[in-house]
Simulated assay, not measured.
Amino acid sequence: MFQKVLIVEDLDSIIETIKTTLEKLAIPQIEHVKYSDDAILKIKKPNMTKYHLNS
C-alpha cells in the first residue's frame, strides 16, 4: 500500500474528504497543497522521499 500521499486540490471540502478516506486506509503520511506549482516544489525538496507519479 502507499506510504506517502500528496493531495493537490484547491477546494477545502474535497481535500478533507480525500484526507478522511486516506486516513481510513491507514496511509501513514498525508500532505496537501492547493496548487500544482506548490506540489512540484514540495516534491523537489531534497529532504523528502520521492513520490511515485503516474502519468
Rank of each mutant, 00 (worst) to 15 (best):
M1I: 01
F2P: 04
Q3E: 02
V5F: 04
L6A: 06
L6I: 04
I7D: 02
V8P: 02
V8K: 09
V8M: 05
E9I: 04
E9L: 04
D10K: 11
D10T: 06
D10C: 06
D10V: 08
D10A: 10
L11V: 12
L11Y: 10
D12G: 12
S13D: 15
S13T: 14
I14V: 14
I14A: 08
I15H: 09
I15T: 10
I15G: 04
E16P: 11
E16Y: 12
T17Q: 10
T17G: 09
I18N: 07
I18E: 07
I18G: 01
I18A: 03
K19M: 12
K19C: 08
K19I: 03
K19E: 15
T20A: 13
T20G: 04
T21G: 03
T21N: 08
L22Y: 07
L22G: 03
E23L: 13
E23R: 10
K24G: 13
K24I: 07
L25T: 04
L25I: 02
L25G: 03
A26T: 08
A26E: 08
I27Y: 03
I27L: 05
P28H: 07
P28A: 03
P28M: 01
Q29K: 14
Q29D: 13
I30T: 07
I30S: 08
E31F: 11
E31A: 14
H32W: 14
H32L: 06
V33M: 10
V33I: 14
K34M: 13
K34G: 13
Y35H: 15
S36P: 07
S36A: 14
D37R: 12
D37P: 02
D37Y: 12
D38I: 09
D38Q: 15
D38S: 12
D38M: 14
D38N: 13
I40G: 01
K42S: 09
K42P: 04
I43R: 01
I43V: 12
K44W: 10
K44P: 09
K45F: 11
P46R: 08
P46F: 01
N47V: 10
M48T: 11
M48Q: 15
M48K: 15
T49N: 05
T49W: 01
K50W: 00
K50M: 08
Y51K: 01
Y51H: 12
Y51M: 11
Y51E: 02
H52S: 05
H52V: 12
N54P: 00
N54K: 11
S55E: 15
S55G: 09
S55D: 12
S55K: 11
